[in-house]
Design a protein around this nucleic acid. Structure first.
Lengths: 147, 147
DNA sequence: TGGTTGCTTGGAGTGTGCTCTAAGGTTCTA
DNA sequence: TAGAACCTTAGAGCACACTCCAAGCAACCA
């Protein structure tokens, strides 16, 4: 399945923002405006503010004029949230996970349990999709045969 | 990838309704009430009627009193739609596909193209999910290590 | 000094995919 | 023959995840 071979290499991190749509940010900095984060994550500014409002992000630092200043830690979190979003996990569940993180170290077991549940969902989704792929291949074959 | 090994075995068909949630229907029949279809597909009656209204299903036969009588062909179609739904394909696109089917044989190339596009989407989704799985495994490992 | 750009806020609006309601007709069981 | 269970319709309502709006402040350039 070529999945666990990744082992300990810290996947999907190391400040290249997200994937694909992302422009890399200047290294060695730890303060980004909302528009920089928009450029690098592909999320809209509206969405980023909304994430903060609903508690899916920790409270973001502000400049002396009240503007958001995102840190590298915030970007890491956004990258992880992006992954969870791909699994189809409802935003409410992600908020729950975020809350557990805020509550501190004694919630580690709960967090692990939550992620393991998500993991099972992901495996099921992959199986479903591979099943669907078989159906699609069958149909496409039918259309290809007597074109 | 163990996908094309299915080859020509007609996957996901042969009147066992859908998967999992489904009770099999009595064989050798070709007329089912909406509640029978509900029991076997797991879709709600509302959803089935809505599918017909928006053109995602062909017009369903009626009894002399106006009640729907689904055929085996309808059930096959619903099973296929169920697969497409799993891919995240928007309902509007499925309706488009249904229209092509209604329009007859000369739309076969279009239909094939549509399904091939969907196939690419599915492959991408699977890759994304496997990527996400790696991230989840990494995190779960972290929580497991120093419990 | 004025104009443009970029940011702030709370709250309203949007698109998708159902899901339910109301009002009424049909079929089955006792 | 009554009552329950099941079906019909058009249209309204809902949950989710954004997405946009209005009004206003702040920073910068000509």
């Amino acid at each position: 399945m070529t999945v666990t071979q990744v082992a300990k290499s810290r996947p999907g991190s190391v400040r290249s923002c997200e994937d694909g749509t992302a422009r890399p940010l200047p290294d060695g900095r730890d303060q980004y405006t909302i528009s920089e984060v928009v450029a690098c994550t592909g999320l809209s500014a509206h969405t980023l503010r909304w994430y903060e409002r609903i508690g899916l992000m920790p409270h973001i630092d502000r400049s002396h004029t009240g503007q958001r200043r995102f840190t590298n830690k915030d970007l890491d979190w956004l990258a992880f949230v992006g992954k969870l979003r791909l699994t189809g996990m409802p935003v409410a569940d992600m908020v729950r996970y975020a809350e557990l993180v805020r509550l501190g170290d004694h919630t580690r077991a709960d967090r692990r349990e939550l992620l393991e549940g998500t993991r099972v969902d992901v495996l099921r989704r992959i199986a479903e999709l591979q099943d669907t792929l078989a159906v699609l291949d069958y149909k496409i074959d039918m259309y290809a045969e007597r074109a």
